[in-house]
Every structure is written in C-alpha cells, then in structure tokens.
C-alpha cells in the first residue's frame, strides 16, 4: 500500500528535487574571491556560546560580537573577521541592514550593532550604512543600496511555517499580502526584485532565542521560545533557512512530538530553490559547520 505524504516526506521531497546548487549566492564576495570553500556545497556556519545570554536571558553583547566574528571568518575561510567583512563589502558600498522589528521577537540590537561595527571596520562610511525593516522600499539609503545584510530571528509562522531570512525580505514587496497565499510559497521571488537581486552579501539567522511554536493572536507565546544561544550565518538565504528549519523541526519533535515536528508547510524554502533558483535547500548540498558550544545543539 502506498503511504500518504507526511510532513517529513514533504521536507525530504522538496530537498531531493533540487536541480542545482546556489547560483546567486556564495560568489558575491567584494574582493572577487570565491567566498565559500567547496563550490559544490553551500557553507552555513552555526555558532553557539553558553554565555550569549545571561541567567536573566539578557543578551551578552561582547559574546555575541565574538560569535558573529567567528562565524563570518569561518564562512569566508579568513583568519581575521575584519578581513572577512572586507570580503563581503567594499568601502564605497552603500549597505542596507534589513533587520526585523516584530515586537515580540525582534532582531537583537547587539547583533545589529555588531554587524554595523564590522561594516565600518571594513571601510564602509557610517553614513552609508542603514538599518530598516518596514520602510525599506522607500528608505533613500535602501533605494540606492549596493549591498544588503539580511538579519532576523528564526521562528515559526502560522502561514509560512517558518519565518527566516527568506521571509525577512517581504518588506521589499509592493504588496505583502500578495505573498501570503499558498503558505507564502512565493517568498523566494523577493530575491529577484530589482531592489534586491544580487545585493545580499550576508544572511544572519538569529537563533539566540528561537521560537518553535506559535500561539495566541500574534502567534507568539513565551512558552515556545528557548535559549539556544546560536547564530546561523551564510551567504545563501535558502541554505540558512533550511538549516533553521532543521533546528525548529528538531525542537518541535522533542517538545511537541513527532506528529508536530514540522511546522505547517514551510514550502517556500524548497520553492526558493527549485522554482526561483535563489539558493539551495538540499541538505546534501549544504556544508553545515558548527562552532563553539555543542550542548543540546539538536542539529
């Protein structure tokens, strides 16, 4: 007898259907060098530190800066984080940091500040660095940006299944609701918009306090947030989100059981690869490098 498609089958299926590795990402280093090491695989770095949050769950900014430095240096195979950032941006770049201000789980300010600081260390003038979320389409700096940094927390989402680096660019869309039907299947197309295409230099998926399940009117309840104390960093937003989904799935399996392990239909990640060609979702084509603290790493 044939078994019906399960959520796990769905995830495996979309991954197996991948046609090719990332075309648009992983080769955008500002110095012209190939960014990630093996051309056949897209590198994603997971870095964790037990002191990234203190006992009161407050962010430890020096530790988070160190984590970002280590992750970006490893991502680009550089020994020095400033050199690594110089591999991402040029001094004359205009850089928009696309953050996320969702009030319940915003991008942590220490992560935003760490990115901005390293961009300046790499030679970018502070006046050419912008930080925005809801008004990126009209923000003059983002309109003329030559480079984008994509940074936001990882969480589940009622419509999309998961909110990650792909969904973070929905504010670049002329109509956000237009991307909501069919479980937000078209999110990958956002990376082909003229304001965005080819500009994303780095994706930082904050897994410091991920949300693995949604409840209530805003799909948020503190019960389903945990202190994972990690950052997931990559040049390819699809690969970064694919790793983020593995993390959310692993946590849901533990907390909610196998029947609920995959959040509802996060199909946009696979489609960003197979339909829109803006990255790779295939685990076999993702090199996951883990740095730092490994307790309860889950993936």
């Amino acid at each position: 007898m044939t078994s019906p498609l399960t959520r796990r089958d769905f995830i495996r299926g979309t991954a197996a259907a991948v046609l090719g590795a990332s075309a648009a990402f992983g080769r955008t280093a500002a110095d012209g060098q190939t960014a990630a090491a093996p051309a056949a695989k897209t590198r994603v770095v997971l870095v964790r530190h037990p002191d990234a949050l203190d006992a009161g769950s407050a962010f430890n900014e020096p530790v988070i800066r160190q984590m970002l430095d280590e992750a970006v240096a490893k991502l680009l195979d550089r020994s020095d984080p400033v050199e690594a950032f110089k591999g991402l941006v040029k001094p004359d770049d205009v850089v928009g940091i696309k953050t996320n201000v969702w009030s319940f789980l915003p991008t942590p300010a220490p992560v935003e500040r760490a990115i901005k600081s390293r961009l300046m260390d790499a030679g970018v003038d502070e006046k050419n660095i912008g930080l925005d979320d809801h008004t990126v389409r009209t923000n003059p700096l983002f309109v003329k940006a030559t480079a984008l940094i994509n940074v936001r927390p990882v969480r589940t989402h009622y419509l999309a299944g998961m909110s990650g680096c792909l969904k973070n660019y929905i504010m670049f869309a002329e109509s956000q609701p237009a991307h909501h039907p069919d479980s937000c299947a078209s999110l990958g197309s956002l990376f082909l918009l003229p304001q965005v295409k080819g500009k994303t230099r780095l994706n930082v998926l904050c897994a410091l306090t991920p949300q693995f399940h949604g409840r209530g009117p805003h799909n948020f309840s503190r019960r389903y947030v945990w202190n994972y104390k990690g950052l997931i960093v990559g040049l390819d937003p699809v690969a970064v989100d694919a790793v983020g989904l593995r993390l959310i799935t692993a946590k849901r399996r533990i907390e909610l059981g196998p029947d609920q392990e995959v959040p509802p239909v996060p199909k946009h990640i696979g489609l960003a690869d197979t339909k829109y060609g803006v990255g790779t979702a295939d685990p076999a084509k993702i090199e996951l490098v883990k740095l730092g603290w490994l307790d309860d790493v889950l993936i």
Binding site: W102, S103, Y158, L159, S163, H180, P217, N219
Partner: peptide, 11 residues
C-alpha cells in the same frame, strides 16, 4: 487588521 497583526491577519 494588518496594522495590528504583523503577518498574522490572514488567520
């Protein structure tokens, strides 16, 4: 409702 619910109004 979109002004109140960032991404969740469709629910």
């Amino acid at each position: 409702l979109y002004d109140y619910m960032d991404g969740g109004a469709e629910v």
